[in-house]
Design a protein around this nucleic acid. Sequence first.
DNA 1: ATTAAACTTGAAAAAATTTTTCAACAAGAA
DNA 2: TTCTTGTTGAAAAATTTTTTCAAGTTTAAT
Lengths: 147, 147
Amino acid sequence: MEIKKTFKDLGLRMSKQRMAVLEFFEENKEGHFSLNEIYEKISQKNKNISFTSIYRACKLLEKLGLIRHISFEERHIHYESNLTPHLHYQCLICGKIIEESPEWLRELKKKLDIKDFLITSYRIQIHGICKECQDKYPEDIRRKLRT
Amino acid sequence: MEIKKTFKDLGLRMSKQRMAVLEFFEENKEGHFSLNEIYEKISQKNKNISFTSIYRACKLLEKLGLIRHISFEERHIHYESNLTPHLHYQCLICGKIIEESPEWLRELKKKLDIKDFLITSYRIQIHGICKECQDKYPEDIRRKLRT
DNA sequence: ATTAAACTTGAAAAAATTTTTCAACAAGAA
DNA sequence: TTCTTGTTGAAAAATTTTTTCAAGTTTAAT
């Protein structure tokens, strides 16, 4: 298992708390979760893990390039697995998120390469207005804008 | 001025506070700023504007597609002007940000288009490890990882 | 299996950031 | 100018993020 070697090389220890967070992202490759959501979901299975440990494990796993964080309209951080690059389209009005994984995304990584930088993850977020919100009457949009 | 028409159509008013924030981003097309930074910089010029107004103006301008928010290693939100698409490379270890604007970025927008979604902005963030941090001894990296 | 050294955890407090409230004010239309 | 309605500011509230430090674990060596 490659992760264990990385931990060892860096003098880090594989505690059961970190393991739980790693497993969580292995089981949840698709979604993106706030720290609280991760905490709650892990707590349902394994009671012996604190919010603080989740917080720290996520920060660590991000630095190791295993997960990445992302921020949507709600201002708190979400984390997601770093395995499947995809696009996030988010509507600025209603907040809805549409995910896409087009073919050309695979070629993009080569283009992103620059000298002297070791890429561990990348993400593309697109903002705009979804069909439903485009169709809304100005009054509805106006109300949303003020919130 | 097109923005004024948008405001009018939506029943929004062009207050001097909103104007100040708009001007701020016109004068600062390049950087990305936390709400506090925006507040402090605007306050230096124009004393009659509260943090709350900056907060609300930024949320509004983002929904109108004029600015966009972005979150780096520090977890609070930064805003940046929506005029010049560019890439952000951030080192996961030291936090340093490298910005690039390669030629091919212009063609990307067409590829991003999907049905029924009106794009107002997009951004690409790349994470990894910079040259300097790659060269560091494990001890230094280890220390950073624990922070 | 023990032990020592170093790393990690958990609970709580602290810090920082974001959001709401509501009375007073201001912009824009008539 | 006046009226209607949108906006502001200050403070409080809510939420989220981060630190602290004593106690507990992990790992490697004995």
